[in-house]
């Protein structure tokens, strides 16, 4: 039972994480490879609050505060990295953000107070699966509504054509910085949930590989698609587990089969499962 719960929990956290990267990568078109860094910053900051500075209030309220702390810490990181780096484009931005992600990880590793390379222990168990999915639902709604508002449109126009976007009166730098900061902040929220459900953090949770996995989830679901991000996160969390569940040779080779499945999917649908589309529940049609 614990195993299923844990898998679902991780899937939920990854929904939030994938949505947050989709805001930066899918909506705004800024190629960021340091997303695990924001995740980690949020996780550690919120854990530092609950372990060392927790206020004498009931658990759920402390969890809310921890989420806010995670959001603010990661958003500040996003702002600090965004101001110089968002002047860069494409590959250069990817390299700069990659460097940032590693800086966060190494900084945590060197900080004795949060356990350094031994990991951060004794984090209170304040969140559970309900917290995780409530937050995922709120963020999903946030992204849906953002996409349909003028601010979302402006951000998406930057991905489509920067020069034309600026010519429509969109302030490029402000809009990019906005999506970068908010995207980082939401990753911080996912970090807070991760810290308070797992009760243990280790710097290796937030290394470069995880940035790539989140990116793969975004691309698999479809850049710019909110429903795509949700499905992408769930599918990518569950498929390796399902392969493990089948057992036998397949379980042994699952980490080989899994990338092959990804390659096949990218060959068939290079735009991701959903492209930039959304799943419609009420009315059909529409772009």
């Amino acid at each position: 039972m614990d195993y299923y719960l844990q898998t679902l929990l991780i899937a939920g956290i990854f929904i939030t994480l994938t949505l947050s990267l989709n805001l930066i990568n899918g909506f705004c078109g800024q190629f960021s490879l340091g997303h695990a860094g924001f995740w980690g910053a949020g996780a550690y900051a919120s854990a530092v609050y609950t372990v060392f500075y927790a206020l004498p209030v009931p658990g759920p309220i402390n969890m809310l505060i921890a989420i806010v702390v995670g959001f603010i810490a990661a958003a500040i990181c996003g702002l600090i990295i965004g101001v110089p780096c968002l002047r860069l484009k494409g590959d250069y931005l990817a390299i700069a953000t990659l460097g940032f992600g590693e800086i966060v990880r190494i900084t945590i590793m060197m900080t004795e107070k949060v356990g350094g390379p031994r990991g951060f222990i004794n984090i209170p168990h304040l969140a559970n699966i309900f917290w995780v999915y409530a937050v995922a639902a709120i963020i999903t709604l946030f992204m849906f509504n953002l996409k349909r508002s003028a601010f979302g449109r402006a951000i998406i126009s930057i991905r489509e054509d920067e020069i034309a976007a600026e010519n429509m009166g969109v302030n490029l730098f402000k809009s990019k910085l906005f999506s970068f900061t908010i995207g980082a902040g939401i990753a911080g929220i996912a970090g807070a949930l991760f810290a308070h459900t797992q009760q243990f953090l280790h710097p290796s949770n937030f290394n470069f590989m995880w940035s790539v996995i989140i990116l793969v989830m975004v691309i698999l679901g479809g850049q710019g698609s909110v429903t795509g991000s949700v499905i992408g996160a769930v599918v990518l969390t569950l498929v390796p587990e399902i392969l493990r569940y089948i057992g036998g040779t397949i379980a042994e080779w699952r980490m080989t089969i899994f990338p092959i499945l990804l390659i096949i999917l990218m060959l068939i649908r290079p735009q991701g499962l959903f492209g930039a589309h959304e799943l419609h529940f009420k009315k059909s049609g529409g772009a």
Binding site: S157, E160, D161, A164, A165, A287
Partner: peptide, 11 residues
């Protein structure tokens, strides 16, 4: 623009 710059993937 001389070489059309529409947001091609938007409606």
């Amino acid at each position: 623009f001389q070489n059309i710059r529409l947001f091609k993937n938007l409606s």
